[in-house]
Design a protein around this nucleic acid. Structure first.
Lengths: 329, 329
DNA sequence: CTGAAAGCGCTTACAG
DNA sequence: CTGAAAGCGCTTACAG
């Protein structure tokens, strides 16, 4: 392995000088610089980044904890990646598969110095633990809004957007509006359920039979199965609001399979506005989240935290939008 | 920051002993072990992994270079992640967005010791460069088969599977079979084109007008646009074979939009068998790749390379399968 | 502008 | 079973 010593020897300078040339922030005589760069080239030297890490105590790496690699999270990731790259950071990805202990394991990487900062794309860790960690390390929570927590976060207001979606169905004249939730160990799933309840309760349309709790791993299939159950009710729903687009598409398929029409017999609304939502036929009415922007913003916040710059706002709620397509009237 | 020294002091032992206790491979007296573990707990000590890295010269990190976070690559990634995790490795993700220089930048991380090994999920780097790198570092190429290269690789045989898909259409009586390619800077896109050509040439059905080159970023839209062009031909196709499922779905949409029926007027075959392929209506006939297994296998190969164990086979071609659904007769 | 030297936090061969 | 010591490859405050 070629080290800085080899370069120094060949260039006839000290290792300090080589380091200075490569770090680019120091004043080194032009001739010296040239000598060093020639030696670097001749030896095809690449600095061993581990040496730098240990010395500077930073890894220029951020860790993104993701519950699953779905279309939705991919889009958020894209935003994170672009900003990270622009600022010389690399993105480490940790997949929890919705397993809480996994998230906890990843969080330990902060203590181990394996990463300079961390973005959680949703979280399942308990509030106290996270608050404590966020006190000591740069951590940003994205896609979830944790009421009462002081962790820096970026998301939409899932409660109000779920309420908005449900109210839209109410205004269209639907009376029996069902909700298929996401996994309830995810904060935003609970929030969407809350928003749904707020709306149906306000209009006295609440019926616990109309709530199906999503659990499964394959959202399309799970949406299909849960919609089947709803359709099997004595008084089936006339509209279904699903907590994500995959489940909504599954629901549409179940409705069709029962020889019913979307939206005439049963309307459907999804959540997220992933790519397939507009491609699927019928195209899905859904709540559109600014996925890329959530990613971008969370990474920008993390950069500020890592650089110890003040955050103007520790909590940021971005705007969502109800996109009406073909699954509602 | 709490270091091994603090733990050693509190436990009344040397740092060497602390290290031995934590590395678990050494014989340490039981009482000493207990003292050390108590100190670790009392101080809430987590080893600074950078110190270990530098000393052992390994990062327990593998880097996966991915051209894009699509459903297909996500599934391959899942396989990689599971095997990586089982073996104590973390997965770093680098997204090239199909930009060749990005891939090159990531490859440099190997020289910098930032990662112990690398898996390329497709490659755009030129053969000589890659061969040279693979001589020196643990590198595996997945999803692409590079003829004549000695880089360890895992993929399906894209040429024969594309030929198989095209021949299937021929056997169903189609005479004007079009092909929408993937980006041709990707090896497997070129291979699929080759397989398609082999089949249509054998049956004297070759017509260059029936080949559309995919370039765009959003496969559904791009498939839609290219299919539109095909439909605008004086002699339009009676079947379309697309190099991926997203494009195939876009093509189906274009066909429907032109008031034609799938598969009666025009049959469609996709490639990959991503999740949406079976969910979309009509469900897509497609070539199913063993995505998870490709990931799993590539990571296993990488492990062997990193541990300097011999590879039984440096090149592995896994089996694909033509899945007939509703877009073909 | 440059060098000698210390040190980042670990691990491990060596000696006992 | 355990400790003293060297050293991994860098960076940087200090001195000149």
């Amino acid at each position: 392995m070629i080290t800085i010593k080899d370069v120094a020897k060949l260039a006839g300078v000290s290792t300090a000088t080589v380091s200075r040339v490569l770090r680019e922030n120091y004043s080194v005589k032009k001739e010296t610089t040239i000598k060093v760069l020639e030696a670097v080239k001749a030896l095809n030297y690449e600095p061993n980044i581990l040496g730098r890490y240990l010395r500077t105590n930073e890894t220029k790496t951020v860790f993104v904890v993701i519950p699953d690699i779905s279309d939705f999270f991919s889009n958020v990731l894209r935003g994170i990646e672009v900003v990270a790259k622009e600022n010389g950071y690399q993105v480490l990805l940790g997949n929890t598969q919705f397993i809480q202990e996994r998230e906890y394991e990843y969080l330990k990487l902060l203590q181990q110095n394996k990463t300079d900062g961390m973005i959680l794309l949703t979280s399942q860790t308990n509030k106290d633990q996270i608050n404590e960690l966020a006190d000591q390390y740069p951590v940003v929570l994205a896609c979830d809004y944790w009421e009462g927590s002081k962790v820096p976060m970026v998301s939409i207001d899932n409660i109000s957007s779920a309420r908005k979606a449900t109210e839209y169905l109410i205004r269209q004249g639907h009376k029996r509006i069902a909700h298929i939730t996401g996994r309830l160990n995810i904060i935003n799933s609970r929030d969407r359920l809350t928003g749904y309840k707020q709306a149906v309760e306000e209009y006295q349309l609440y019926d616990p039979l109309l709530i199906q709790i999503g659990e499964g791993d394959f959202s399309y299939e799970s949406g299909f199965q849960l919609a089947q159950k709803l359709l099997a009710l004595e008084l089936p729903p006339d509209a279904i609001f699903a907590a994500n687009d995959e489940m909504a598409i599954g629901a549409v398929k179940a409705i069709k399979k029962n020889s019913l029409k979307v939206p005439d017999d049963i309307a459907v609304i999804g959540f997220n506005d992933i790519h397939i939502a507009s491609v699927f036929e019928p195209a899905l009415t859904t709540i559109s989240q600014p996925m890329y922007k959530i990613g971008e913003t969370s990474m920008k916040m993390l950069l500020k935290l890592m650089n110890q710059e003040p955050l103007l706002k520790r909590q940021l709620l971005l705007e969502d939008k109800l996109v009406v397509r073909e699954t509602t009237k």
